[in-house]
Simulated assay, not measured.
Amino acid sequence: MKNKKMLLIFTAIIFSLSCSNENGVKNNNIKNIKNLKTEQEYLKSIDYSNIADKVTQNKIHEILENAKVDSDNIDLFLKSVNYYNEATENKGLIKSGFLNSKNINPNYDEAAIQQIWDKKNKNFPGFNCRITAFTLMKDYIKMEKPVIKAGEMLFMDMESLKNVPFKLFSQNEKDKFVNLFSEIPTEMTKDVRVHAKNVKDAWKERGIVFDKNSKISMISVFFHFNDDPKENILFVGHVGILVPEKDGKLLFIEKLAFQQPYQALKFNNRTELNDYLMNKYDTAWGQPVAKPFIMENDELLKEYRINPNNKN
């Protein structure tokens, strides 16, 4: 029980931050991390928005619509964005458009945002990355087998879905959400190739199938937990949606954490996206567990590479 409580506490910390080859490890998408190409310069700046103004929201609506995302899901996403922005009085947000920043990990006053939020939302913890990503991605994920029981790591998500102020998901969609995001058993190794294969195998066992014809994709940052020596698990500590734009750029949409805002970021390629995410989440030192790793749908991101500022 003590280890379970430690696991839940560590989860809360994460919240605040927060054709396939059957052989898995031999898949070309799961490369030897030491041999990944690093010729491209590491990301130095980002273009990002908090989706706070009508012009930006209309533009993102158009991009999602061009990617064939259902208009009802887009409307639900933007309704959630506006609910959060209004409830937090636009605290710390970019008021309009996109901003170029040399700080690739923008800072927000989470404590101040929490105080404002709590005045208006006594029982609703808010929207997080998983709820946000699933809102846009749910039609492109099929569930062919019975739902598994919700894992302990989803306790805050389930509380939010229970108290959300407007209908967001049907019961079938909630079951799919649980099936997708509940923690995944793994083994004690730092080899992310092994963990990526375990994710792929677990989702296959759960009947999770990603639509190969979808223009959008789910970008998941997995964390390896080993708080109980007898139990190793993988969990989606952060997730967002990647959408192609007509000009060739990539739009990444995310909700940083319950009491951190929505962000939309523009990247030239997936290597830049990888660098942005690994800069934010590959920060631990001296840990016995594997580094965070990034999946695009059910494959290890081809452009995956570690944070050069953390070579531990």
Rank of each mutant, 00 (worst) to 15 (best):
K142C: 00
Y140K: 14
S101Y: 06
A111D: 14
F124L: 10
N121S: 08
I104N: 08
W117H: 00
I141T: 02
T135L: 10
S96Q: 13
P106C: 06
W117A: 03
F134K: 10
E110A: 14
I131E: 11
P146D: 15
I141M: 11
D118M: 11
F127P: 04
I94K: 11
K95R: 12
P146E: 12
N121Q: 15
P106K: 07
K138E: 12
L99R: 09
P125D: 11
Q114K: 15
K138V: 02
D139W: 00
P125M: 08
A112R: 04
K138Y: 08
E110Q: 14
K142R: 13
L99H: 01
I104K: 05
N103A: 04
K142T: 09
N103I: 14
M137Q: 14
N128C: 05
L136W: 01
D109S: 15
T135Q: 09
N121G: 04
K138N: 15
K138R: 15
I116Y: 04
I104F: 06
P146M: 11
M143P: 04
P125S: 06
N103H: 03
Y140A: 02
Y140G: 05
K102Q: 12
R130T: 05
I104M: 12
R130N: 07
A112T: 10
V147I: 00
K120H: 11
F124I: 09
M143T: 05
D109P: 10
L93V: 09
N105C: 04
K122D: 05
A112Y: 01
A133W: 01
T135N: 13
Q114V: 11
I116Q: 01
I141A: 09
E144G: 09
K145H: 05
N103L: 05
Y108R: 03
D118S: 13
A111M: 02
K120D: 02
N100W: 00
F127K: 01
F124K: 00
D139P: 07
S101L: 09
K102V: 12
M137L: 13
T132V: 11
I113L: 02
R130V: 02
I148D: 07
Y108W: 12
G97D: 14
N100L: 14
A112F: 07
G97P: 12
G126N: 14
Y108H: 14
K138Q: 15
E144W: 03
F127G: 08
L136G: 05
R130C: 06
I94M: 10
A133E: 06
N100T: 14
K142F: 00
A112W: 00
A112Q: 09
I94E: 11
T132L: 02
I131M: 09
S96C: 07
D118L: 13
K102N: 15
K102I: 10
S96R: 09
N107A: 06
I131K: 01
F124V: 02
S96N: 12
D118V: 07
K122F: 00
S96T: 15
N123H: 06
D109V: 07
N103S: 07
W117Q: 07
N121R: 05
S96I: 06
K142G: 06
Q114M: 05
F98R: 10
S101A: 12
Q115N: 12
V147Q: 15
I141D: 13
I94S: 08
A133H: 01
K120L: 02
K138I: 00
D118H: 12
L136I: 04
K142S: 13
K95P: 01
E144I: 02
